[in-house]
Amino acid sequence: MNTPPFAELGFYHILDVAAWDHLLFVAALIAPFAPRDYKLWLGALTAFTLGHTAAMAGQVALHLPLNERLVEGSVLATLLFTAGRVVWFKGAPKTSRRGWFGPELAVAVAFGIVHGLAFAKDLGPLLPSDPGALWAAWGWFAGGIELGQLCVVAAVFVVRWMASARGFSPKDFALSLGALTLGISLHLASQWYLV
């Protein structure tokens, strides 16, 4: 069976090593979580996917006049915020301890929207005009994104487990991953905002 093309596209949209922003964003988003917190991280990832796909579909349909530089700068801001938050709370954001399902979903949806708006311009011109094909494309694309994110999550959890086996506490692991992501984000931001 052939992989639906838009599922593949969604999958590699996340797992594209040349586009670090999604990889880092997902890693920073789930850094504080353990696999058993699946309701929290899966909810956040799915909310991100839905926001991302809905924003792309909306932008493709409505062609809102957006400032490209502003949108791409906002993508970087979401990365800085997510990683910065993990570092600020020393690897254990308060909200994660309180069961912050609601606010986290809202943040993930909002960030998904920003990321989706940034990608809409790349995909929009190639989409089919037939409504059935268009809906199918969006559905497969969202599925591909979700699957790609789950691969990142799996990789992070494997590294987390390896770190744990060598004496790293989950909090230290999250803080290290958050700090690494923040450092890379700041480097990217220095290139983006200062140029």
Binding site: L9, Y12, D16, L123, L126, L127, P128, S129, D130, A133
Partner: peptide, 10 residues
């Protein structure tokens, strides 16, 4: 990934 698309109505 570079993309192009074809839409065919038969």
């Amino acid at each position: 990934m570079h993309l192009a698309s074809h839409e065919i109505s038969v």
